[in-house]
Write a protein that binds this DNA or RNA. Structure first.
Lengths: 191, 191
DNA sequence: GGCATTCTGTGGCTTACGCAACAATGGGAT
DNA sequence: ATCCCATTGTTGCGTAAGCCACAGAATGCC
């Protein structure tokens, strides 16, 4: 989003990465609740006090990990200069479902305890993403409305993902194609 | 050797490892002479000034890399509580030849410029190793003599390695078996 | 219940590292 | 020969990270 990204001390990046990597590794073998800060800092070969200089607690770390991995995943299939249209929505849907799949496989032991946190996180991120896309295509609509519509759209999409995951036997591509007319109908208010 | 190994700041170990790893990686693709300090520190994501806090120059780094890898290699086939005998000598010979082989393959681009440095280094290390083994088995011989005999033995063994590498077509195991009687004859002065 | 143990945040102090700037050296090109 | 640019070590200063010790909370065990 902001490309200048003014220089960050390399030590900060290094330590952050050490912590994130350590956490992701541990999450594969241990339940989230039973992971202690010490487990993480030991694995990261970082002092416990240093952890707290980067993150307030375990949950903030989880948040950061999700942001990193989710956005990484997202950007592989979407660039933020796209307009919000049928293709974009479909791509977002597919990226989310793929991401969830990956998480539940990679983080077997922790995924269940993560789920509600992940859900909120992704919806917030989505909301921000949609809002960004919408403002970028300068429509003649007040920002207030765009904000709310972003919320609606993010819940809608995320709901679709959850439903697909839990109840559907369709391939993701089919599912989203089926859902698309309804979504587009809602988005039509934009133009 | 010394097992207490009083605690070292983890940052030092980390930085050192980053530098060593970076160097070994670069050595695969570039000639030693053409590797700059900046190349190394960039790859290691470490500041150039930090490099100089750890090593005086490129050669000291090379020295450290060799020590680490050589001793690692050596200890896999030998423990320092062994006595100095036929088996030990044979193991050392094989460890060295294996190590040289590995280097020349791994560090294609740099090996030739390394060679003389490596040679001195290994002989020094060998000398220390032999001296250690000899003193450990408390013989009734002055230290002064043990020191000199360690030198002779290390040159002898290293010479054998070089000759094998350059002139011999025998398998290393055969070669050392052939050379062994002569070496043992020399060592007989010890008992 | 009580007791011991582990974990969590936090603060004060020390140390290692990053940064920018420097003079000195050494090719390489024209 | 001259200029140019890159590399080499070195320095002083600011900041991130390590270390230790602490009190309070949580957990487990009997």
């Amino acid at each position: 989003m902001m490309q200048p990204e003014q220089k960050v001390d390399p030590r900060i990046l290094r330590t952050r990465k050490l912590i994130l990597d350590a956490f992701m590794t541990i999450a594969k073998t241990k339940d989230f609740a039973s992971i202690s800060i010490k487990d993480i800092t030991d694995a990261a070969t970082v002092n416990r006090a240093t952890f707290y200089a980067h993150f307030a607690d375990k949950y903030e770390l989880l948040d950061a990990v999700l942001t990193d991995t989710f956005f990484k995943n997202m950007h592989e299939h979407l660039n933020c200069h796209d307009r919000l249209n049928e293709d974009t929505v479909a791509n977002v849907f597919l990226a989310i479902t793929r991401f969830q799949k990956e998480l539940s496989v990679q983080w077997k032991k922790s995924y269940e305890s993560f789920r509600p946190i992940i859900e909120n996180k992704i919806k917030k991120d989505l909301e921000g993403l949609f809002y960004l896309l919408l403002t970028n295509q300068n429509l003649a609509v007040e920002k207030e409305k765009l904000k709310i519509w972003s919320v609606l759209l993010s819940w809608e999409i995320y709901g679709a993902c959850t439903d697909w995951q839990q109840n559907s036997t369709l391939p993701a591509e089919k599912y989203i194609k089926t859902a698309m007319p309804y979504i587009l109908q809602g988005m039509a208010v934009l133009v």
